[in-house]
Nucleic acid binder design. Structure first.
Lengths: 336, 336
DNA sequence: CTGAAAGCGCTTACAG
DNA sequence: CTGAAAGCGCTTACAG
């Protein structure tokens, strides 16, 4: 039943030569070590005949590399991060790497625990969505050897590669659209998290409002990440009551928008009669609104791909080039 | 900078004893090997002082175990599977295991590739959502030593543990509800996949329709998994036109339901005036329907937890008990 | 061009 | 109760 596992030694015996040769050939170093072409062929044939699979543990022990990358997201059950996870997974598996995921739930302590347990496993490189207050943790990780790519948010004080949305521009562009459509009373709903993407979305909105001389309309509702479901209803209803002319809501994240739409529906408010909507990210629900709604589509798979490629470049090339890749959002307008 | 990695030898030196003792203590075998309590304390102290982290690769090489489990889902970017992934992840990390995910996209070839690449990495155990036609692949995997738990679908011909929904009962119960509410013209929309969950949902519907003498109303629309977006519209519109009295749609999966709801909305059909809806799984969109809609909630995290626990029982206990765990769905009714 | 051998870090029979 | 040593499977200087 449990056929003994095939090692390099078995191949060496079958092909009638030493383990060294087998290893050279199997690692594609035939040329480098000037292995006789016949020898090379024999090894390859024997390996195939025996259905040889290298023992990763042994390779890791020898090389100090695990061919595994660690990816820490906010929450892999959130569709945004699930899609990123999928795209990283696809690229990594093509490169022969395994991916290990962890979810921080925006909690710096969990992030720290995840990093230390992944780090203990000997991970070759990390892709990290940094939660707030995670600067120190990531800084100390960066001191070890493994390369790191930050995703979705950057930390300016750390010299690390990162892949992010051009959040400021996206948010500014969205605000500008609303203003062009004649809205003045535009409220932003955003999380009370000190992470770069959120802060830049706030800032893009504020900047455009000021540029359009709408300073007195500026209102940023900061929602606590944990309490989205409980306290949020009052905030939304309050905003609707303080109407000054045509009203629009700008949502810094899709989850906030979804919750707001549910509240609107529950209380009988209509889009666009009572308020128009501009959100980050697409949701199935948007297909049920034929007007008064627009959204900024992020290149989600693009994030995963860019981050994975950046990491692999650092992993293999060794050239520790620090890059910030900034991708643009696409504004989709539904008759707003 | 790059502080040399701490090994068991460093601890042995610091504590002034042999590597054997250190290993015994660190593996909690002090009692078994009757290690002197003082020795035990010294080792623990030294390990802590040095901030020792065991080298997983070396442990794996010695033990043949990797402390890693492989989880193959249909698609980790699908919310249903993302939630399962998360719950497995949480349990595994508590047990000190790492999880590696793969997505088969319901494609038996991809499943096979995933299994062989995971298997080559030396995975301790598998949780697999079997795609159709994956019986042979899984059977041959089962012949190797690693324990397997099937998830979401079972394969009766294989003697393997599995965690599934009681699909037949759920579907039957849903159909029964519709009939009780006066519906006769109930159409089922289901995937054209030969996997147990789908087939049992079909069967539950059919059984209840027959039991209620509604044989002539039975209609199962089998949709091809790949072509949900293209050909589906005609199917839905066709079904709406062939109305015989009050009409209800029963959806075997949430993705089919979502697509159908979008089509209804696009063509101006109303719920419940034109048709009532009963779907598997919750979706945010359901909150926007205040009547004519019901859904079966699956215990999604429960699937992940049960599967993980089952796998770990097999991994540690060694008792290769084959169990099928069948969980029940909860019917949520919105004024249907 | 090829082989013998060391060593990655760990665990565990085997002596004592 | 404790230490010396073998060996997991692999890679790679080192000889030849």
């Amino acid at each position: 039943m449990q056929k003994r596992t095939i090692t390099i030694k078995d191949i060496a015996e079958k092909a009638g030569m030493s383990c060294s040769l087998v290893s050279f050939v199997l690692n594609g170093k035939s040329v480098q070590y000037k292995v006789n072409p016949d020898t090379t062929k024999k090894v390859l044939a024997a390996a195939k005949a025996l259905n040889y699979k290298p023992n990763l543990a042994a390779q890791s022990l020898r090389s100090g590399k695990t061919k595994t990358i660690g990816v820490i997201l906010s929450d892999i059950s959130n569709p945004f991060f699930a899609e990123i996870a999928r795209s990283i997974e696809d690229i990594a598996s093509k490169r022969g790497y395994t991916v290990v995921f962890g979810s921080s739930d925006e909690n710096p302590d969990k992030l720290k625990n995840l990093i230390s347990s992944l780090s203990a496993r000997g991970i070759d490189g990390f892709i990290i969505v940094p939660s707030e207050n995670s600067e120190k943790t990531i800084k100390s990780l960066a001191k070890e050897k493994a390369p790191i790519v930050l995703l979705d948010r950057k930390i300016n004080s750390l010299k690390l590669s990162s892949v992010v949305l051009n959040n400021f521009e996206a948010s500014k562009k969205a605000t500008e659209l609303l203003i062009k459509r004649g809205f003045k009373d535009i409220e932003l709903f955003s999380y009370n998290l000190k992470i770069s993407n959120i802060l830049e979305r706030d800032s893009g909105y504020e900047t455009q409002m000021k540029a359009s001389k709408l300073d007195k309309y500026i209102k940023i509702n900061k929602i606590s990440y944990d309490k989205l479901s409980t306290e949020f209803e009052d905030v939304v209803l309050g905003a609707l009551k303080s109407k000054k002319g045509k009203k629009a809501f700008l949502f810094a994240t899709n989850s906030i928008c979804l919750n707001a739409l549910k509240i609107l529906h529950k209380h009988g408010y209509k889009v666009p009669q009572d308020v128009s909507i501009l959100s980050f990210d697409y949701s199935d629900i948007f297909d049920f609104y034929s007007e008064g709604l627009a959204y900024l589509e992020q290149p989600i798979s693009g994030f995963g791909e860019a981050a994975a490629n950046l990491l692999f470049d650092n992993l293999n090339g060794g050239s520790p080039s620090i890059k910030t890749i900034s991708l643009d959002a696409t504004l989709h307008i539904k008759n707003i």
